[in-house]
């Protein structure tokens, strides 16, 4: 038993070492933000000799943080909510009516959407969005992000299939309609997988770059990641500004992770693709 304990300690030590190596790029990014450019070049991994917040001051000047942060928050919150609702509803039909031929076909039809990269379709898509008067608009961006419902319904579908139908049957006998059954009985049971889906989609939506730069033109509608990206182009020659800009863009996601840390694993636990 004692040998086993020693083994566990050795394992832990080895793992922590691997973690340290794994973390070097992040450490490097963060430590560089507190140094002058000259120092970054001369002593890349050392702690800052002259601790400076100048880079952050410059970075905040280069991007309009509050406006773009607000836009990002707005787009992410609404998109993710819509994705959850739309996916869960679609998945319910896909799971419960899976024997119907038309549903089978639609299931396959949706699956194809998983595979299509935006780069291949952006010109026609732009024309369509223009026809819908949704270009250069945050609502348009939200609409585009809702395409995430394809992955969402895929994830929900497996979970719903595994849910026993007894409760639903009982409610139906009591006279409840399908809509009521879904919202009152099924949807609350989906909570674990919903957490998973929210985590995935918050990450994707917040970090999205392609939809935003293609469909949003005006600076006052730009998102935080867009601002950072424009900064990359502009300050490509000055990494002392670039790195703090990157850190600023990361920070909200890190906070999000820390808050939801337990749910991320927990959500996956229950949700994990009970087919």
């Amino acid at each position: 038993m004692k040998r086993r304990k020693t083994l566990l300690h050795v394992q832990e030590a080895v793992m922590l070492l691997i973690c340290a190596v794994f973390f070097i790029p992040i450490y490097y990014l963060i430590v560089s933000t507190f140094k002058t450019q000259n120092e970054i070049v001369k002593a890349p991994l050392a702690l800052p000799a002259h601790f400076t917040l100048m880079n952050y001051a410059k970075a905040f000047q280069a991007i309009s943080f509050f406006r773009s942060f607000g836009n990002s928050l707005f787009v992410t919150a609404i998109s993710v909510t819509l994705i959850v609702v739309i996916s869960a509803m679609a998945a319910y039909t896909l799971a419960r009516k899976r024997e119907a031929r038309v549903v089978k076909f639609l299931d396959w039809y949706l699956f194809l959407g998983f595979l299509i990269p935006l780069q291949t379709t952006m010109i026609p898509l732009f024309s369509i969005m223009k026809g819908l008067k949704l270009t250069n608009s945050l609502l348009g961006l939200i609409f585009l992000h809702c395409n995430g419902c394809v992955f969402g319904s895929f994830l929900y579908k497996g979970f719903i299939k595994a849910l026993p139908e007894d409760l639903e049957e009982a409610a139906r006998i009591d006279g409840a309609g399908t809509t009521r059954i879904f919202w009152k009985i099924v949807f609350p049971l989906l909570k674990p997988i919903t957490t998973t889906l929210v985590i995935f989609n918050v990450m994707w939506t917040w970090n999205d770059f392609l939809y935003t730069y293609l469909f949003i033109s005006s600076s006052d509608k730009s998102t935080l990641i867009m601002q950072v990206y424009n900064g990359v182009g502009q300050y490509y020659n000055d990494w002392s500004v670039m790195m703090p800009v990157l850190v600023i863009a990361l920070l909200p996601m890190v906070i999000f992770y820390l808050i939801l840390q337990n749910q991320i694993i927990g959500g996956l636990t229950m949700g994990s693709m009970k087919n």
Partner: peptide
């Protein structure tokens, strides 16, 4: 009539997907 709610549940996803992905692919 019993199936109408199911169809309505699936409709938003299908519509969004068709507009954003399917039509542009055909166009491409």
């Amino acid at each position: 009539r019993k199936n109408v709610p199911y169809a309505l549940f699936l409709a938003p996803a299908i519509i969004i997907y068709t507009i954003i992905t399917f039509i542009p692919v055909v166009w491409t």
